[in-house]
C-alpha cells in the first residue's frame, strides 16, 4: 500500500507504458555495450550445425532430410545456453532487488527483459538460419517455413527459458539445472517448429503449424511473465 501513497493513481496510469519502454531501452543498451555476449550464441549455433555433417554423414540427401530438425535443435540449444545469464548480472549487482522493490509492475520489467533477450538472440538466430539451411542442404522451398517458424517459436523459447532462469537465479550451479527444468517444456515448440519446416519442404500447407506456434506464443506472452515475476520474487527473497 505504501506505493499508492507515494504515487498518485493518475500519474501512475500515465507512467505504465513508460515502464516497459524504459526497461527495454536500458536492457538493449546494456546488451549493445556487451556485444561479445550477442555473438556467442550465434557462433554456438553455427558450430552445432557444423558438428552434424562431420559427426553423422556429409551426404547431401541425408542431411537435407535431417536439416529441419537439426536447425531447430541448434537454435533451441543456443537459446538455452544464453538463458543462464538472463538475470544473473542484475541479481549480482542488486538491480533485480531494486526492480522488485520499485512500485512499477514487475511483470512489465520482466517482459522488457525477455523482449530484449529475444532481440539479442532469437532474432539474429532467425536471420542466420538460412545460412545453416544452406550448410545442411535444406531445399530452398523450406526457407520461408524455417524463418517463419523460428520467428514465432524463438520468442516462446525465450519466455519459457526465462522461467527456468528466474527459478535458478539464486543458485550457484544454475546452468545444468535450467536445462533440466526447461527442456521438457521446449519439446512442444520443437515439434511444431520443425514440423512447419518439414511441411514447407514437402509443399504441405504451413498455416496449421504456424497457428499453433502463434497460439503458444500468445499463451506464453500472457502467462509466462506472471510465472517469471513470481519465481524472481521467490528466488531473491529466499
Amino acid at each position: 500500500m505504501s506505493e499508492m501513497a507515494t504515487n498518485k493513481p493518475a500519474t501512475q496510469d500515465r507512467r505504465r507504458p513508460g515502464t516497459f519502454r524504459a526497461a527495454l531501452k536500458r536492457d538493449l543498451l546494456l546488451a549493445f555495450r556487451n556485444r561479445r555476449d550477442l555473438v556467442n550464441p550465434l557462433v554456438f549455433f553455427l558450430m552445432v550445425a557444423t558438428l552434424f555433417p562431420l559427426g553423422v554423414s556429409p551426404e547431401p540427401t541425408f542431411l537435407a532430410e535431417l536439416a529441419p530438425g537439426l536447425v531447430w535443435v541448434a537454435a533451441l540449444l543456443a537459446t538455452l545456453l544464453s538463458m543462464d545469464s538472463l538475470f544473473r548480472a542484475d541479481y549480482e549487482d542488486g538491480t533485480l532487488e531494486q526492480a522488485l522493490l520499485s512500485p512499477q509492475p514487475l511483470i512489465l520489467v520482466v517482459l522488457a527483459r525477455v523482449t530484449a533477450h529475444w532481440v539479442m538472440t532469437g532474432l539474429p538466430l532467425t536471420l542466420m538460419a538460412p545460412l545453416l539451411g544452406l550448410m545442411l542442404f535444406l531445399p530452398s522451398e523450406g526457407m520461408p517455413g524455417l524463418m517463419l517458424s523460428l520467428l514465432l517459436g524463438t520468442p516462446t523459447l525465450s519466455l519459457i527459458g526465462a522461467i527456468g532462469a528466474a527459478l535458478t537465479v539464486g543458485l550457484r550451479k544454475g546452468g545444468m539445472l535450467i536445462s533440466l527444468l526447461v527442456l521438457p517444456l521446449y519439446i512442444p515448440v520443437l515439434i511444431f517448429g520443425s514440423g512447419a519446416v518439414q511441411a514447407a519442404v514437402t509443399g504441405l500447407p504451413l498455416a496449421g503449424y504456424l497457428a499453433l506456434l502463434g497460439a503458444m506464443l500468445a499463451l506464453g506472452l500472457v502467462l509466462a511473465p506472471l510465472a517469471i515475476a513470481a519465481a524472481l520474487r521467490i528466488s531473491v527473497s529466499g
Binding site: 539464486g170 517444456l185 521467490i234
Partner: peptide
C-alpha cells in the same frame, strides 16, 4: 525429474517448495 532436481538444488525448504510449486504450475 526437473521438479525433483530443483527441490534437491535449493537448500532452504520454504524457497524450494515455492520454486517447485511455480514450476509444477507451469508444467
Amino acid at each position: 525429474f526437473g521438479i525433483m532436481a530443483l527441490h534437491a538444488a535449493i537448500e532452504d525448504a520454504t524457497t524450494a517448495a515455492q520454486s517447485t510449486a511455480v514450476l509444477a504450475l507451469v508444467g
